[in-house]
């Protein structure tokens, strides 16, 4: 099955873009299955189902969404492959800007929108820097000059990615994206493949549902920050 990971900040249009691109693929007789990793709740399953796309939505709940994603990749791949789809797309919401879901050897897509501020491409970090394709949405809401300046900033952060403008509402540009998805690497199994960027290390008291604030409650892998002019304790 061809494998694609899609990541991006909340509300940037990931689901709209993926659903439209899958729709364009289906018109060419090529099937997709989508696994959506989310945190606590999501209505995205309905959007995919309405578009006639096989979808499975899973929630990290009390766990770090990044770790939850990594620990469920084999199963996600198996489910998508089990639907008989030619292309499996894993859409991840809730990944913090520290993280990137992209896998070496699979197609990695980052979705970002034109309204996020000029420093967004830098702040978004590895999910953009390590992507193969950067999709920019909401370009219809800004001037052409702003689109170009924003694109330039994305290019500075990621020198090799293909950058495309897509309108998630009208679907403009989704046919091009579908053509790219149709060429994603065909993979037999994700077992033994590697993430492009390591997940954050954790296991502290807060990982174990601690809610109280204060050093006395903190155990395990705890890192104290160094604030301006004050040394850490």
């Amino acid at each position: 099955m061809r494998l694609v990971t899609v990541a991006g900040p909340p509300s940037c249009g990931k689901t709209s873009v993926v659903a439209k691109a899958c729709g364009a693929l289906r018109e060419l007789g090529r099937s997709c299955a989508v696994v959506k990793f989310d945190c606590l709740q999501s209505r995205d399953g309905e959007i995919y189902r309405e578009a006639g796309i096989a979808v499975s939505v899973v929630f990290s709940g009390g766990l770090c969404p990044d770790h939850f994603f990594a620990t469920n990749l084999e199963e996600a791949f198996a489910w998508a492959a089990g639907t008989g789809a030619e292309t499996g797309i894993i859409e991840t919401a809730g990944l913090c800007n520290r993280c990137s879901p992209h896998i070496r050897g699979a197609l990695g897509i980052c979705v970002i929108d034109n309204l996020m501020g000029i420093d967004a491409p830098e702040k978004i970090g590895p999910m953009l820097r390590l992507a193969d394709i950067v999709i920019v949405t909401k370009g219809d809401l800004v001037s052409q000059a702003e689109r170009e300046v924003y694109r330039y900033r994305i290019r500075q952060m990621n020198g090799r990615a293909v950058i495309r403008h897509v309108n998630g509402l009208t679907g403009q540009g989704c046919a091009d994206l579908a053509a790219i998805l149709a060429q994603a690497p065909d993979i037999k199994t994700v077992t033994d493949m590697k993430l492009r960027f390591s997940m954050p290390a954790a296991v502290c008291s807060y990982c174990l549902s601690e809610t109280r604030i204060g050093s006395r409650y903190q155990k395990g892998n705890v890192k104290k920050a160094r604030f301006a002019g004050v040394s850490d304790g």
């Binding site: 501020g117 000029i118 800004v142 001037s143 702003e146 924003y150």
Partner: peptide, 11 residues
């Protein structure tokens, strides 16, 4: 040149 009358970028 669209009907857009406002910039949104923080520069």
């Amino acid at each position: 040149l669209t009907q857009n009358m406002n910039f949104v970028l923080d520069l």
